[in-house]
Design a protein around this nucleic acid. Sequence first.
DNA 1: GTCTATAGAGGGATAGAC
DNA 2: GTCTATCCCTCTATAGAC
Lengths: 216, 216
Amino acid sequence: MAKRLLSFANLGHGVNVSAVTSPLAWEHVQPAAARRLLTGAIEAFAERGFQATTTRDIASRADMSPAALYVHYPSKERLLFEISLYGHRAALEILTAADTADTPADRLRAMVAAFTAWHAEHHTIARVVQYELAALSPEHFTEVATIRRAISSLIEKVLADGVSNGTFTVPDLPGTTLAVLSLSIDVARWYDPTRRPSPEALGATYADLALRMVQA
Amino acid sequence: MAKRLLSFANLGHGVNVSAVTSPLAWEHVQPAAARRLLTGAIEAFAERGFQATTTRDIASRADMSPAALYVHYPSKERLLFEISLYGHRAALEILTAADTADTPADRLRAMVAAFTAWHAEHHTIARVVQYELAALSPEHFTEVATIRRAISSLIEKVLADGVSNGTFTVPDLPGTTLAVLSLSIDVARWYDPTRRPSPEALGATYADLALRMVQA
DNA sequence: GTCTATAGAGGGATAGAC
DNA sequence: GTCTATCCCTCTATAGAC
């Protein structure tokens, strides 16, 4: 396969799922062995998917025997849940922190830019967050679904505020909310840090697109 | 989990992956047993993913024993490949058939509408097409990647034509191509035929969004 | 807390009868 | 072309030594 491929076509084998987020972000996971397992699991789940990832693979990425995993996590699913929960919380925090401007237009711009940049910068964990939901236990899925609703509500609220004060024109509020989220989320599927624009540049571009979507 | 959920949040267990495309579309797969296996595999792969689907599951959906599968297909992966290949060809044909208008704006509108509606109407097979690429063998992936490049090229060509004749303003051609494709593709992830707009309505909406993206 | 060894279950694919 | 039976492997998780 040629090196020079459009990203759209180059999404199977050989996808670059590189190093992972900033290591600092996982300092709260103690001890270090548990953290190595967690970051190894993020990479493995993002590359191969939850079902195709073996506990042996995760353990070997952490330079441990398969059995050592169970000292730190009771199951493979629990590892997925902790990753998914942390990732969803991080995405919600990013969005909340960006919601500070005075006008709906400025708020939407900042929120879409931040949400998009997060999906690009942390595309590894974002892939797990967005595409491995079905592997969670029903109870664990319920828990992250609550966070997903909160994320959706934040965007819907900004759009509604823009409609209220007359700056946005949105015929279908839930549909437009979904479209705005959709564009950012899909970044996790195709983003390749070796070829694509920086997360910040992409965020700025997508923020513009979102504003055009609501005819601001 | 409450019935009334925003689609964004409702993407794990309980996703509605209903009946499948039109049965007519698979008439070329003969004999009928092979067709039952293929359509069963599409539903199973879309619901659970390739790795989580067992050959026993596929066979039982076709009311057959596990062994009977191997009379019609040499492996589980081959079943995935045939689904993926057919799905990619169908998407390319849909896009090609829609590329008939005179102006770039009308062409883009028709193509995005058709491509989006296809991902909604055939969201089951579209999920397999868009999210199970990594489970293909390297050789089979190479083959569908060719079709993916053709799809991408069709969109890029329309955008380039619009830039040439001055009706579109596109600072980043590959980036905008990807964003237009991205919005349509993500439909396969969240589309729920029991709640969402009809494929045609969604296609019309997304065609408008695409035209705004290129400032037509 | 880490290891080696392994239990116990399940899955892809095949053998051989009909 | 479909079945029953099963091989053989891999995988999650546990047992028990250190």
